[in-house]
Amino acid sequence: MRLIVFAMAIVASLQGCGRRAPEPAVLEQIEAQDAARIAALAAQVVTYPDFGDDDPVEWDRRAPQTYPVHGIDVSRWQTDIDWQQAQRAGVSFAFLKATEGGDVADPMFATHRRGAETAGVPWGAYHYYYFCRSAEEQARWFIRNVPRGASLPHVLDMEWTPKSKTCRLRPHGRDVRREARKFLDLLEAHYGRRPVIYTTVDFFADTGIGTLHDTEFWLRSVAAHPQKTYPGAYWVFWQYSGTGRVPGIEGPVDLNVFRGAPEGWIRWQER
């Protein structure tokens, strides 16, 4: 993809200068080289991992095991992770909890980030949103705690918080969407890539969050395929278990799939 974009930039530059653009055969060669590069990177992805689950589900539609690219999301509850072992077992990506609200930082974030980077596991960070603070305040808190350099876009985790001791507000859907846009815009301006939104079935239905334009979604659905629980929704990541078992991780962990083949996974990261 990067080679193709570079080639297109050269073409535009030459045309703007009145010079002859590369012949189609040259562009085809560049495209072929890019395809070969993508194929080589995709071949390094460990596909269709055989992770365990403490609470397995008999899927009534397409099972998560039919998707080749799997990953995890972790927080302070996952303490000592052998990232090298997890990567060899098939962890192709990881979303790491970084912050919540406007004043809470996950104490394991830096450790998880260093571990993922050392093992070559692509990572992004996620922020758990509370509706008792403004989007601007929460975005500033995230930016303060998460350095640039992630290999994946970051994530805005939006869901209802009925068990919170400090914030149980349930704003109207239009207010939720407005605040989400503010948060996404601020992070995109700082990190250069628009975050993904993670959410749950009830929040998705209650707020109309899925109507946000230019936004990709990571959807939780641990008992049925998202096609059933989020009718008509397009998703990029699917969290299919909260009780998974992965080599190198002590205790249960959330399991996810990427919606696409290994080649699509590489291209999606490079956009």
Rank of each mutant, 00 (worst) to 15 (best):
P56R: 04
R168I: 05
D80W: 01
T166D: 13
S151P: 07
F51Y: 02
Y198E: 04
A139W: 01
P247A: 12
R170I: 03
R37F: 15
R245P: 03
Q84H: 11
W160K: 03
M108N: 11
V26M: 11
R181E: 15
F93D: 00
A119C: 07
S75E: 10
E58P: 06
F109L: 07
V11P: 08
A21W: 02
T161V: 05
E100L: 00
Y191D: 02
P226W: 05
V121A: 09
P56A: 06
R37N: 11
Q87M: 13
V91A: 02
Q227E: 14
R148G: 04
I72A: 01
D185V: 05
S241M: 07
Y128C: 03
Y234D: 09
R271G: 12
E58C: 06
P24H: 10
E216L: 10
I249W: 05
Q44G: 08
R170L: 04
A39W: 09
T161A: 10
G244R: 13
W265E: 03
D206W: 07
M8I: 04
S221G: 13
W238I: 03
M8W: 09
W59A: 01
Q84A: 13
A180N: 05
R114E: 12
A261C: 10
V155M: 13
H112D: 08
L255W: 09
S92G: 08
R174H: 13
L187F: 06
A63E: 12
P68Y: 10
Y126K: 01
G102Y: 00
L169P: 03
C167N: 08
N145K: 06
K97G: 04
R133Q: 14
A40Q: 15
P162I: 02
P64A: 02
